[in-house]
Design a protein around this nucleic acid. Structure first.
Length: 570
RNA sequence: GGGCCUGUAGCUCAAUUGGUUAGAGCAGAGCGCUCAUAACGCUUUGGUUGGGGGUUCAAGUCCCUCCGGGCCUACCA
């Protein structure tokens, strides 16, 4: 038995995430966690909400609530939706937790002692009307290059020129529109990533089998221009982890907080502490401290491509720089983006289908299946209602759902609602068992390698084997001359159902549970020997014909939804 | 501007890392079956691998160039 630590990139707090966010991190992480649990391995699957930073403050202000209250509410909203999608977190934490606060301050202290933090005095734009420093992209003005009047302080979206906020003509706050801006001197802490460049590069170079997407982004940041740059890890904000050096105050840093991308990954560790403090477990260090049992843990991270630099460079720099025996990630699985019907999903613009809306119109399994079987692994992929309808109807309703329906209903009409007795398995049955065994091995191989789309295809191929067998065996024919033979055939076919349920559970957990319940069995582990697995339902075992597993999506529904989700969310 | 990824059948994707005749699913066509959610099975049509050039006994794969799509570029997270 191996032990798997699995984390999903933590979703930002300022609203409900869309399907593109879901498929890029939480959903494949859940697939892998469920699979490893299914294989009998010990799993710690952690996620959390990422709650600090300027956008959270602004979203709270817009909602007219104190930021702490806003975050607490939104955390509950996201947690509830995650349950709706059956995301099986062992703990869904909060980056604003006391545990994370303390741990973040601890890491900062260790890094400072190791000489990996330096203070930098810099000039930043302060808005008197807003009472806050403004991040570059929250400053708008006229582009000195092309004259575009809504250029942002970091870059002009019209001519793509890189800008400095002080370059802008007639600068104003993007928050309030105020032009009462001034440049102030402020001091910040920088993490000396540049000192760790060689160490990080050697580490990345020795990782094997990482996705191209992951390593190419990491290498780009390591070697682009002057190489890996030091990164500011503090901000002039109210909402965040107060800057401290371990438990000590940090002279000159009063009133400042750590930058979200410093404290957010640390929450992966803190979430395990929260898990203990919530009474769900007793020992988090055996997952995170290599001196306390975590050296045999396999740690896998899931994230969208925009998060790769933080997970391959900044967070490892934090861990390595601490000089303490924290567990480093073993495999970084990254995803491209999912587009929506010819354009991008957009949280800020409200474009696409959001997680809450998705659950309002269809059960989680439909979304899980489509999203995972079309996961954007090799390049960006696209959601269209036509493709969604066709895939779900064919794969879930026709191939799997109808298989279950035809087997159970045939049995009920000829033998009653119990597994029939008599007859013996022949050559065709031996062939089916061998084919299934081979298909399951292929499926396991893809799941072990976290090849999500390939795993989905292999699973579907296993479902197809059942339909092929029925066509060949034709129990409706053999029943006429040799009912005993038909009994043996249908007994084997019935036995495919709990097998499919166990294999399919990582993708479609609700349907799997419904199948097991209908067949009157509990999960009893991953199938090892296929002959044993396919004789689990003994003659005489009672079952019930399940309700329609997957109703088809009609053309009317598809058109209705395509229209409903064609515009922007308010 | 720089860098990275990507372009394969009408659609969504493969191709053991340079090695037989480029494969699946869906859609289309034909046949079969009648247990089943008009479902299932079998057969089949369909490709100058974006264009052009090069290296090689051999190129979807490597190199150059052009065209298209996307992402990143460090203060959104």
């Amino acid at each position: 038995m191996t032990r798997h630590l699995i984390t999903s990139a933590i979703p930002y707090i300022n609203g409900i995430k869309h399907l593109g966010n879901l498929v890029g991190s939480q959903l494949p992480a859940d697939l892998y966690a469920r699979y490893q649990r299914g294989r009998g391995n010990e799993v710690m699957f952690l996620c959390a909400t990422d709650e600090h930073g300027t956008p959270a403050e602004l979203a709270a202000a817009k909602a007219g609530k104190p930021v702490a209250e806003y975050c607490a509410e939104m955390h509950e909203v996201q947690a509830r939706i995650a349950e709706g999608f059956r995301l099986s977190f062992d703990h869904f934490g909060r980056s604003s937790s006391p545990q994370n606060q303390k741990l973040t301050q601890h890491f900062a202290g260790r890094l400072a002692e190791a000489g990996l933090i330096r203070e930098v005095s810099e000039k930043q734009v302060f808005s008197n009307a807003d009472g806050r420093f403004l991040p570059d992209r929250y400053i708008e003005g006229t582009c000195p290059n092309c004259g575009y009047d809504k250029a942002r302080g970091d870059q002009c979206e019209n001519c793509t020129k890189q800008l400095d906020p002080t370059d802008l003509i007639d600068p104003r706050s993007a928050i309030s529109g105020s032009t009462d801006l001034e440049v102030r001197e402020t001091k910040h802490l920088y993490l000396c990533q540049s000192k760790m460049k060689d160490q990080l590069e050697e580490w990345i170079d020795t990782r094997e089998g990482w996705p191209i997407l992951t390593t190419s982004i990491a290498k780009k940041w390591l070697n682009d221009g002057d190489g890996l740059q030091d990164r500011g890890i503090t901000r002039d904000l109210d909402w965040g982890v107060p800057v401290k050096r371990g438990e000590e105050d940090w002279p000159g840093m009063e009133g400042k907080v750590f930058y979200v991308w410093f404290d957010a990954p640390i929450e992966y560790i803190a979430a395990a502490q929260e898990w203990v403090d919530a009474g769900k477990g007793t020992d988090w260090e055996r997952w995170w401290r290599t001196d306390k049992g975590a050296d045999d843990v396999r740690y896998t991270q899931f994230m969208g491509k925009d998060n790769v630099p933080f997970h391959t460079l900044s967070f490892p720099a934090t861990i390595l720089g601490s000089g303490e025996p924290w567990k480093l990630v073993d495999y970084v699985k990254s995803f491209n983006y999912l587009n929506y019907d010819g354009g991008q999903f957009s949280t800020s613009q409200g474009r696409g289908v959001f997680m809450d809306q998705a659950l309002e119109i269809l059960p989680a399994d439909y979304w899980r299946w489509w999203l995972l079987s079309h996961a954007p692994e090799s390049s960006d992929s696209e959601f269209t209602w036509e493709n969604f309808q066709a895939s779900v109807n064919k794969d879930l309703a026709d191939v799997l759902g109808n298989f279950v329906s035809r087997v159970t209903k045939f049995c009920r009409s000829k033998f009653g609602e119990e597994v029939p007795t008599g007859g013996a398995l022949g050559a065709r049955e031996a062939q089916l068992i061998a084919d299934i065994a081979a298909q399951v091995r292929a499926y396991e191989g893809h799941m072990d390698a976290i090849e999500v789309r390939k795993a989905a295809a292999a699973l579907r191929a296993a479902w197809v084997l059942g339909n092929e067998y029925l066509q060949d065996a034709a129990p409706w024919s053999t029943f006429k001359e040799n009912p005993e033979q038909a009994a043996a055939q249908i007994r084997l076919a019935l036995n495919l159902i709990p097998l499919y349920a166990v294999l399919s559970a990582p993708f479609i957990p609700d349907a799997s549970a419904a199948l097991l319940e209908a067949m009157g069995v509990e999960t009893d582990g991953w199938p090892a020997d296929m002959e044993t697995a396919l004789s689990r339902l003994a003659p005489g075992h009672a079952f019930t014909v399940p309700e329609t597993l997957f109703a088809k999506i009609t053309d009317d529904q598809r058109e209705d939804w395509a229209t409903r989700f064609s515009g922007l969310r308010d």
